[in-house]
Design a protein around this nucleic acid. Structure first.
Length: 951
RNA sequence: GCGCGGGUGGUGAAAUGGCAGACACACUAGCCUUAGGAGCUAGCGCCGCAAGGCAUGGAGGUUCAAGUCCUCUCCCGCGCACCA
């Protein structure tokens, strides 16, 4: 037999498939459709490394199986090529980026082709093709028509190195995602898309998506919805008001000062006239400094908080008419909420830190409520609470720095002294009585009142959910006078004298720990929900329940805010889609649809100007256009910004449905047929950019009737990176790049494909290991040799046939759930068993080849053809597992004695439990372990195991 | 700090609550070959001569039975982070 010559075989079949158009996708098919998509690549000058095809191989396998199962599969490929990498390359080499992109695309296609993908290349798209970006511009026009694209002059993130504005999503840790330079805030004219209008739908519809939870969670975080209240504070002796946003209107009575962001209009306007502020210069200096800081410096949470008081300015708390000072401080963000906050230091950590530093009053308005969530005393849900007035007494020793604590004897509790308040006792009387009863001490003296601490728990002896409201009182013993304690009290608990440090580990109840923090003077802001105090008519109410009531009482408005910001959509660079927009002095005039596309002109220099203008501005012939005829003709100026890299990829999946249509973005009938992407595979790094932008545009296109689905990608799967052999990210910088061309040449595309799938779980990052790949090659060699055992009238054993059917089932299920690694290993097991057979029947071997075909399309096609088949294996039918064969007649029964496996035996499937038990007890190995002891219990699981328990 | 994933041999990893380590790499021994990154046979978690015991980051728990379920805890990766 011939040697397995992968080079010859792979070349031969790739040509043959292309010639016979084996993978051409039909639009007018009666078959059920399946749309499977890879995130298309950005063709850089460096070419693909072995990590790039991992996702493509996985989708290729799924699409091949689906095709064999008789579905009409759309599995397209294209190129995303606008943006900075191509432009920077152009600047370096002084070539037109269009030329470099064309060259890179050719290279990428060649690299992809030798791996043997089943793409229908007749549907290839390229985002830089005017025939494509015509429709990107068209979508922009529609957004503009609906008021979702607008010009703004707000300060935005600016990368001084890339010399362009950036979207919020392009900034990571205050640095430009592309080049790592710290971004600055810079006010400039820019185009912005109103993605915030879709925030609520983008958030809500995540729930129906079959996506990895981590990516959905990232998007939820990014959108950052929160509900709260907007409240106006009037300014003393002035007409203007200060509007704040808060999620905690229930703490309104605890406001002791206000804070506004340095960029806030309120501050800017005050600074316009010296006489407005007694400390004008100080404030001006602070504001200037704060605005100059970079995003990193500003947003570092660990940075010490700074601020300056606006001397002479006071705000009036609408709830209690109290007069509070106003500060300007950079811990308040200008672009979230209203850029101003009401500070409640007692119940907000940041305000607390600031108040401590500037010695501002801290006023408690929420009493803590602790809920027991662990046993013993875990509350029973949906069960009413019995309220009880109570005390917690902290008693200091008469001379030592020690405090009295109770160690409970019947439960694992450590507490201060506790008790109920009976009848018309005052809390102080009740506490003194408890001290005497429980400990015998006679002369406690009240030092201070720590207020109430509430706790919810299940009272085990009384069988009720209890809600205890404990007045927490601090006493000091005047002397050691003590009387005897009754026996009953002594049986319940033991008195201990402990230091503060010892109490930290001794006290088991959260409410007592809270009291201890007050005692030790280390309490910080209590930020959880609780019961209102010092809040006028609202005192005693539940904080959760009064939020809307308080809002209403001060004329506030219940609102929803998002962290998500509108999408800064213009770049001051050359290599992007031009905007279909004209300017006429102040007026904005959209280019009419029939004049699309606005083609990107050639320029002499691609260098960014850094002035906030793109290089396009330097081509007067392109910028100045005469529009209209006769006396209606006007000279207009074109918009010279370009769109960001993310524009083209925000809708490309739709174009594959109808890539050549010059009349419409996508033909409505084709859109209805192909519908949504059934399965989308790509890197998790796109979680908060491409995957949010595309969802946004898709929802917009739904609203204007272009698409018929609410979401673009039904099921999403993320690919785990392939790292270099050194475990570091594969990159030119580390010199650890493995070139797939070389692997394909030396080992073959089929080996590469098989290995990348066999490496490990698909979504997990993993290091490349060329050594480990040998195993996949050997497997294919063995499959090749198996051909010699195949005869028309060959036979395989019953067991092997059973295994074959189990393998069909396993491979089918594993491909569907992207467990390609275990699919490969199950085929390896089958081939190992085949090797032990003398002959293999043709039909059985063909089934095996079909299972392997999606993974190793070339070698299987060659063997399939060699067996005399005329049509391609890839359009043959997918095998079905015969369930009746999978159910083996004999099963192995495991016997456990006291939970340890001691023996096993073979039984006929379906043997009665009694029969299994009897056989098991008769086994010598079992008898040995039971000895003369009597089995206490015997558990029998049919067709599986017998578990014997002996004393 | 909050949220989402993970911790299993020398390595990559398998395992509907039912024989932990399938499958593969590496390694060891032997065979076959004019030596090669080839093939075949056997071995390969740890301790132990063995019988057997111990092992899925750590500590408890539920169960006849736990890598798998529950509680606490440590470590690693990712996302968000002064968002009021």
């Amino acid at each position: 037999m011939k040697k397995y010559d992968h080079i010859k075989i792979e070349k031969k079949w790739q040509r043959e498939w292309a010639k016979k158009k084996v993978y051409r996708t039909e639009d007018n098919s009666k078959k059920q459709k399946f749309y499977i998509l890879d995130m298309f690549p950005y063709p850089s000058g460096e070419g693909l490394h072995v990590g790039h095809p991992k996702g493509y191989i996985a989708t290729d396998i799924v699409s091949r199986m689906k095709r064999m199962q008789g579905l009409n599969v759309l599995h397209p490929m294209g190129f995303d090529a606008f943006g900075l990498p191509a432009e920077n390359y152009a600047i370096e080499t002084k070539t037109n980026p269009a030329i470099a992109v064309a060259k890179n695309v050719v290279r990428y296609k060649k690299q992809l082709e030798i791996i043997g993908f089943d793409y229908d290349w007749s549907r290839e798209i390229n985002t830089t093709d005017p025939k494509y970006y015509k429709w990107t511009q068209w979508i922009f026009l529609k957004l503009f028509e609906r008021g979702l694209a607008y010009e703004s002059f707000e300060p935005i993130n600016w990368c001084p190195s890339c010399k362009t504005g950036l979207a919020n999503e392009d900034v990571e840790d205050g640095k430009c995602e592309r080049c790592g330079t710290s971004v600055e805030k810079r006010p400039m004219r820019q185009w912005v898309l109103k993605i915030t209008d879709y925030a609520d739908r983008l958030l809500r519809d995540l729930n129906v998506l079959d996506w990895p939870e981590s990516i959905k969670e990232s998007q939820r975080n990014w959108i950052g919805r929160s509900e709260g209240t907007e409240i106006n504070f009037t300014i003393k002796d002035k007409t203007e008001k200060l509007k704040v946003f808060t999620t905690r209107p229930d703490t309104l009575f605890g406001v002791t000062y206000m804070v506004v962001a340095p960029e806030h209009k309120f501050v800017t306007e005050l600074l316009e006239h010296r006489e407005n502020l007694k400390n004008h210069d100080e404030v001006a200096k602070y504001v200037t400094h704060a605005c100059m800081e970079t995003e990193i410096e500003r947003t570092n949470a660990k940075k010490e908080k700074t601020g300056v008081k606006l001397e002479g300015i006071f705000a009036i708390n609408p709830a209690n008419k109290e007069k509070v000072p106003v500060f300007v401080a950079d811990y308040v963000l200008a672009d979230y909420g209203t850029g101003a906050v009401m500070a409640v230091p007692a119940h907000d950590e940041r305000d607390f830190v600031f108040a401590k530093k500037y010695k501002l009053p801290i006023k408690q308005v929420i009493e803590p409520v602790y809920t027991q969530t662990t046993e013993p005393g875990k509350i029973i849900p949906n069960f009413p609470f019995e309220h009880r007035n109570a005390i917690i007494a902290i008693v200091k020793h008469w001379k030592d720095d020690k405090y009295m604590a109770l160690k409970w004897k019947k439960v694992a509790w450590g507490t201060f002294i506790t008790g109920g308040v009976e009848g018309n006792q005052t809390p102080e009387e009740a506490a003194k009585m408890e001290i005497k009863e429980e400990t015998g001490f006679l002369h406690p003296k009240l030092i201070s009142n720590f207020g109430r601490i509430h706790s919810k728990f299940y009272h085990v002896p009384k069988k009720v959910n209890r809600f205890a409201h404990s007045h927490t009182l601090y006493f000091k013993l005047e002397n050691d006078a003590r009387e005897k304690v009754t026996e009953t009290e002594n049986e319940i608990h033991e008195v201990k004298w402990l230091t503060i440090d010892e109490l930290k580990t001794f006290l088991t109840e959260d409410s007592h720990q809270h009291a201890l923090r007050i005692l030790a003077d280390v309490s910080d802001a209590y930020v959880d929900e609780g019961i209102l105090v010092n809040s006028g008519a609202f005192s005693g109410k539940d904080s959760q329940e009064v939020k809307k009531v308080i809002t209403k009482s001060v004329g506030g408005k219940w609102v929803v805010k998002y962290k998500l910001k509108d999408w800064v959509f213009s770049r001051q660079r050359y290599w992007g889609e031009p905007f279909p927009i004209f300017h006429n002095s102040d007026k904005i005039i959209p280019v009419s649809e029939k004049d699309l596309p606005v083609v990107l002109p050639k320029v002499k220099s691609y260098e960014p100007t850094g002035t906030g203008e793109s290089p396009l501005a330097s081509i007067p012939k392109w910028v100045n256009v005469k529009v209209g005829v006769g006396k209606n003709a006007k000279m207009l100026k074109r918009e010279t910004n370009t769109m960001p890299q993310w524009a083209g990829s925000s809708w490309y999946y739709l174009r594959y449905m109808d890539p050549k249509n010059s009349k419409a973005l996508v033909d409505p009938l084709k859109e209805k047929y192909w519908n949504e992407v059934d399965f989308y595979v790509g890197g998790a790094e796109h979680a908060t950019r491409h995957l949010i932008y595309a969802r946004f545009w898709h929802k917009f296109l739904y609203d204007i009737g272009i698409v018929s689905t609410l979401e673009p990608f039904k099921k999403l799967q993320s690919v785990g990176l392939i790292m270099g052999e050194d475990g570091k990210k594969m990159s030119k910088r580390f010199g650890n790049i493995v070139n797939p061309d070389l692997i394909v040449k030396t080992y073959g595309a089929d080996t590469l494909r098989l290995y990348e799938m066999f490496m490990g779980p698909f979504d997990q990052a993993i290091a490349w290991n060329t050594n480990g790949m040998i195993g996949s090659r050997r497997f294919l060699e063995r499959v090749w040799k198996l051909r010699q055992k195949v005869h028309e009238k060959g036979t395989i054993s019953k067991e092997t046939e059973i295994l074959l059917h189990k393998t069909i089932k396993k491979v089918t299920e594993d491909i569907s759930s992207i467990h390609h690694n275990t699919a490969v290993s199950s085929m390896m097991i089958l081939s190992n068993v085949f090797e032990k057979e003398n002959t293999i029947s043709k039909t059985h071997f063909e089934i095996f080849l079909k299972l392997l075909a999606p993974f190793a399309p070339h070698i299987t096609e060659e063997l399939w053809c060699d067996l005399g088949n005329k049509k391609s294996i890839h359009i043959s039918g997918w095998p079905l597992a015969d369930e009746s064969k999978i159910a083996e007649r004999s099963v192995t029964i495991v016997v456990q004695v006291n939970g340890k496996v001691r023996a096993s035996f073979t039984a006929v499937r379906g043997t009665s439990k009694e029969g299994l038990e009897k056989t098991a007890l008769d086994l010598p190995d079992v008898k040995k372990w039971i000895g003369d002891k009597k089995p206490k219990r015997i558990i029998v699981i049919s067709d599986k195991l017998v578990s014997i328990v002996v004393a």
